[in-house]
Design a protein around this nucleic acid. Structure first.
Lengths: 171, 171
DNA sequence: CGTCGTGGTCTGTTCAACAGACCAATCGAG
DNA sequence: CTCGATTGGTCTGTTGAACAGACCACGACG
């Protein structure tokens, strides 16, 4: 999308947002970052994306301030910045719409507000404390709409187990 | 994006959603549909998109059940279906993220909950009735972050005036 | 020392988006 | 009725992004 990525001349917040996260793969990378994926090769395993494009996407997300790249011994780690974490409501809303339109058995993934120990509602709000919790306070687990096939790789298996959002899966 | 539009093999609601609205232009078309745009030529005027691609995008949104095409005398009208209207929380969340990351003077557009006569908050909720109102109950107007240049065409000028979402601008 | 995993770059190909020409149907003005 | 403008497209040639896959440098491990 990159050439056209500049929806220039548009005085619109949505267009600005899409210039950053509207390209192919971008939001799926952000989603996996919320789930705890941090490494180049792990993003690749999850997404079946070409290396060149992954390099480019991670680079542009870093440049846009959505991800931060941390050198970490032998390997790198890409983690969400506060600005990237602020994408959570948008990611959640799109997931719920995807569930509503394509799943007959309910959400594929559920999110529990850890301090209150309840699942958030369809608008992302905690029914107990009535707040819209940030991703860091949520734990995710498969929902009734989740697929039944065995995961294709150990990484995806780990991502299916209940775990806190934003917690890196590897040190 | 269309070839790759099938994020196939992904058991993920976000991927399903992006297969429908993740292509270039799609969400901007949906945004304009919320603002009341219904006609082929009006989408074109707003978006500076090639005719062939617009034809294709409108077609795939209709096929996906997001838009409905109504023959209407000499011209056609594309209007949001209930499923399309359900995209409002996602569109709103992305707009707010776009504002937060690219606007220094606040939101470019504000949304008022008509029954309660108050602006909705950053999470899309009405501070009075505490509900997350559907788009049909909202009125929009320019916010403090809106651009100051004069609109490039009469259509965009009309879209700047306060008006109810989903209300067609033309009969 | 060989080999595996990591994190890339480079090359050739394919396919979607683009600009712009063209066109049939309809509508309003004269 | 005729003329021109508008609407809602289709078609063609070009460009550029995504893709598959080869290659490579570095470090860890056995």
């Amino acid at each position: 999308m990159a050439l056209g990525t500049d929806y220039s001349g548009q005085d619109c917040s949505l267009a600005k947002a899409l210039e950053v996260v509207g390209e192919r793969w971008s939001l799926l990378l952000v989603r996996d970052a919320f789930l705890g994926v941090t490494r180049f090769s792990d993003f690749r395993r999850r997404l079946d994306i070409s290396k060149a494009v992954l390099t480019q996407r991670l680079g542009s997300l870093v440049e846009a301030g959505v991800l931060e790249r941390r050198m970490h011994g032998g390997h790198d780690a890409y983690v969400l910045t506060p600005s990237g974490e602020a994408l959570w409501p948008a990611v959640y809303a799109l997931m719920r719409w995807g569930d509503a339109t394509t799943s007959t058995r309910g959400p594929r993934r559920l999110f529990r507000h850890l301090p209150c120990d309840v699942d958030v509602d369809v608008s992302g709000r905690c029914p107990v404390c009535r707040a819209t919790p940030p991703a860091a306070e949520l734990e995710t687990r498969p929902g009734p709409g989740a697929g039944t096939d065995p995961p294709t790789n150990p990484l995806s298996a780990r991502l299916r187990e209940p775990h806190r959002l934003l917690a890196p899966l590897r040190e």
